[in-house]
Simulated assay, not measured.
Amino acid sequence: MVEPVFAHSLDALPDQARLLSLSGRAFMEAMRDGALPHPPISETLNYRLDTVEDGRVVFRGAPEFAHMNPMGTVHGGWYGTLLDSCMACAVMTKVPKGSVYTTLEYKINIIRPLSVGTEILAEGITSHSGRSTGVAEGTIRGVEDGTLYATGSTTCMIMKIRDGA
């Protein structure tokens, strides 16, 4: 397995020309394979890109002590960020060359608390990808036993920046 490449300055992140030169799926595959850096947020929240397919993305990770809230449970923002990431990146796999996306809105449902160190898979699956919007659903499940910890849904805006030819 290729170790993730983490960026520690803006210069290490892909520029817009590089982003627009690839289809969304090719961009995600390059990130998975280590040819492009992973986003800094994935280092902060301890997750990595595991699987990239057409309309489907899976992240693997585990919450750490730093992700706990004052009540001693994993903060809801950890669940939300992982779901936002996997769902939006699933939409990204459908984005054509010359276009980008951004999350318009997302909703999550936390089903049960996660313990620190529990390894999870956050899976996003695209249900619609059109000219200007993409819709995806997501789940967070335990690796060991498939326990469902959270679900989510998102709508993303797809924007054509220039001709992808």
Rank of each mutant, 00 (worst) to 15 (best):
M1W: 03
M1A: 13
E3P: 00
V5I: 11
V5F: 11
D11P: 09
L13N: 01
L13T: 07
S21T: 07
S23L: 02
R25I: 11
R25H: 04
F27M: 08
M28F: 06
M28D: 01
E29M: 05
E29A: 01
A30Y: 04
A30C: 09
A30N: 02
G34S: 02
A35D: 08
P37H: 06
P40Q: 08
S42A: 10
S42P: 01
E43W: 07
E43V: 04
L45K: 02
N46K: 12
Y47A: 03
Y47K: 00
R60N: 12
A62T: 04
A62D: 02
P63M: 09
F65H: 15
N69W: 10
P70L: 14
M71G: 13
G72R: 12
G72W: 13
T73K: 08
H75P: 07
G76F: 11
G77N: 09
W78G: 10
Y79S: 05
G80N: 05
G80H: 03
L82W: 10
L83C: 02
S85K: 05
S85F: 06
S85E: 04
C86D: 04
C86N: 02
M87R: 06
M87I: 05
A88P: 05
V91L: 10
M92D: 06
P96H: 09
P96K: 04
G98P: 03
S99N: 08
I108L: 14
N109M: 09
S115G: 07
V116S: 01
G117K: 15
G117D: 14
T118R: 12
E119V: 15
I120D: 11
A122V: 03
A122P: 00
E123V: 15
E123W: 13
S127K: 15
H128I: 08
S129A: 15
S129P: 00
G130K: 09
G130Y: 12
R131A: 11
R131W: 09
R131K: 06
T133E: 01
T133L: 14
E137P: 08
T139C: 04
I140F: 02
R141A: 05
D145T: 06
L148K: 07
A150S: 10
G152K: 14
T154N: 14
T154E: 14
C156P: 00
I158Y: 07
M159E: 02
R162V: 06
G164S: 03
G164Y: 10
A165I: 02
A165L: 13
